[in-house]
């Protein structure tokens, strides 16, 4: 008997599906929305949004007295005094017991109010932004793409990507949206 791979490919060949025509792409690939729309749509998910000019000052206001995970590669002036910064190596337990995590992002999407992390500098491996119950994410205005297609163009699919649209949520009980299940229950977005 042939192995599974050979047999499945043989079955596919035997099905003789005729080639499909060219794919129409008449949808909008670009959008008009900017930072304002992004802020509005992030807030729609019940995330907290601030427009800030002085990031360190805002971080001081939000984070002093807390134990916050700081991935490698954050700007030095974000690591403000009065915060207990937790840096790698961090165990799962360390992350579970942290008060929160501070990151930047790889891109953001105005149309959908989404931020995207790619585990790059200032974001760290994926677990860092998953286990702490509170996530502060700083988005630069030039990182906001208007549409989903424009955002995907900016991203490298070979990196581990996490698209985040609001805090974790569920609609599993009578289809009511409830914020806060397993991922961070509070998402605070700083736009600068």
């Amino acid at each position: 008997m042939a192995d599974a791979r050979t047999e499945i490919l043989n079955r596919i060949r035997a099905a003789k599906v005729a080639p499909a025509g060219p794919t129409p792409r008449d949808y909008r690939r670009t959008g008009e929305g900017g930072v304002e729309l992004f802020a509005e749509r992030v807030a729609d998910y019940r995330a907290i949004v601030h427009a800030v000019s002085d990031v360190p000052a805002k971080l001081r206001e939000l984070l002093v007295g807390k134990r916050i995970v700081a991935p490698a590669g954050l700007p030095a002036d974000w690591l403000v005094d009065g915060v207990e910064w937790l840096t790698e190596p961090l165990s799962t337990e360390d992350l579970d017991q942290a008060d929160g995590v501070l990151t930047n992002c790889a891109a953001a999407i105005a149309d959908t109010g989404t931020i995207v992390l790619d585990a790059g500098a200032g974001q760290g491996r994926r677990a860092l932004t998953l286990l702490p119950d509170y996530h502060v994410c700083v988005v630069r205005t030039d990182q906001v793409a208007a549409s989903v297609p424009e955002a995907l163009e900016r991203l490298d699919p070979l990196r581990p990507l996490t698209f985040i649209s609001g805090p974790s949520a569920t609609s599993d009980i009578e289809l009511n949206r409830v914020e806060g299940v397993h991922g961070p229950r509070t998402l605070e977005v700083l736009i600068t």
Binding site: P157, P160, F163, S165, A169
Partner: peptide
């Protein structure tokens, strides 16, 4: 929703 809360991509 405009977008679901989390989408993960890995390679």
């Amino acid at each position: 929703e405009r977008m679901n809360p989390y989408t993960s991509v890995w390679t």
